[in-house]
Structures are given as structure tokens and as C-alpha cells.
Amino acid sequence: MQTLLRSFLLAGSILSLTALAGGATVGAAAPDFTLKDLDGKQVKLSDYKGKVVVLEWFNPGCPYVKAAHTKGSLKDTAQRQTKNGVVWLAINSGAPGKQGAGVDTNREGKKTFGLDHPVLLDESGQAGRAYGATNTPHMFVIDKNGTLVYAGAIDNSPDGEGASPTGGKLINYVDAALEDVAAGRPVKTSNTKAYGCSVKYGN
């Protein structure tokens, strides 16, 4: 009995530490989650197995998110890609009371940016930490087998507007990853450093 309890406690500690360390790994299974959308409906990632999924860490109050959705690489990208059968989920891991958090604020943001895809609230930050989401926007692409194939920035222009691409040419990393996935080839650029506001996790 004591051995069982010790094993249980050890397993629990390992899981907790893993959760704290965070950070899904490209090439490994994408962590599953169940979150509620803005209407309170539960959305489970594993329900989309067999489809390509894009996760976009989101905060409607973040100036980088605003820039990306109004002038930059997120403008119309989700709408284009969902027409190709991609599932696009925005996730807000902001804790209650933090910038951009709450149902009403996200509903307003969804309307302002013309988003057709779900915005999921992760107020505990559990999903965000499981993926190692550090910024908004922070993008993750998951293939049909549930494997994480891209993690990082939306593009190579850290002003959010697409006006300052590193190297001179604007690259939409998510579009590029989805193209590779659709062509059945390994994602050429699978990991980049995300830029933007910090995710507003709770303390």
C-alpha cells in the first residue's frame, strides 16, 4: 500500500514537473487539451485527429497580435487555410484580470479582427505551459497524426506588421509549414523564435 502510494506520488511529481517545465517538442506528439470556447462549448484537440491543426496563442490586447491581424501575416491567413481543410484554434492563456483576458474581451477581439475560428480560453495556463507558449502570437502546427511539426513565430518580421522582415524577404512560417505538410514532405523550417507580447499567465 505504501509502495503504491509512493509510486503514485512520484508519478504525480514527475507529471507536475513536466507541466512546469513545459514545451512541446517538434517531432513528438502534440499535448492534448480540453478547453472551452467563448460560448462555453468544450473543444478537445484529439477530436481533430486526422486533420491538420494550427494553434495560435492569442491576446486581443497585445499590439503585436493587433498588428499581425490587421496588417501582418495573420491577416486572412486562418480564413485561407481553413478553406484548405486546416483546423485553426486561437488560445488565450491569459489569467483572469490580465491584459486581453476574459470572454467579453476576446469576443470583442474576435469581432474586431474578423475571426471565424474558435477562440479558446486557457485561464489556468495549463495548455499554454504544456506547449511552452511564451508569446502572443506563438504558433504551433500539428499534422494529421497528431505530431507537432512547427513551433515558433508567425513570420520573420518582428514588428508584427510584416514591414521589417529579417533578411529582407517576408516569410510566413505557418503558410510554409502547411505547404510542406500538404506536400507530404518534412517541414523545412520547423522551429523559430516566437516574438510578441509575453503570454499573460497567472502568478
Binding site: 499590439p63 503585436y64 498588428a67 514588428d159
Partner: peptide, 13 residues
């Protein structure tokens, strides 16, 4: 000038 400043809670562009 395009600039950005931050405090621990928010960034402005």
C-alpha cells in the same frame, strides 16, 4: 520612428 516600450505587464508599439 517606429518604436516599442514595455513594462512587466504590457508592451506598446
Amino acid at each position: 520612428v517606429a518604436l516599442s516600450v514595455c513594462n512587466p505587464e504590457i508592451c506598446l508599439i
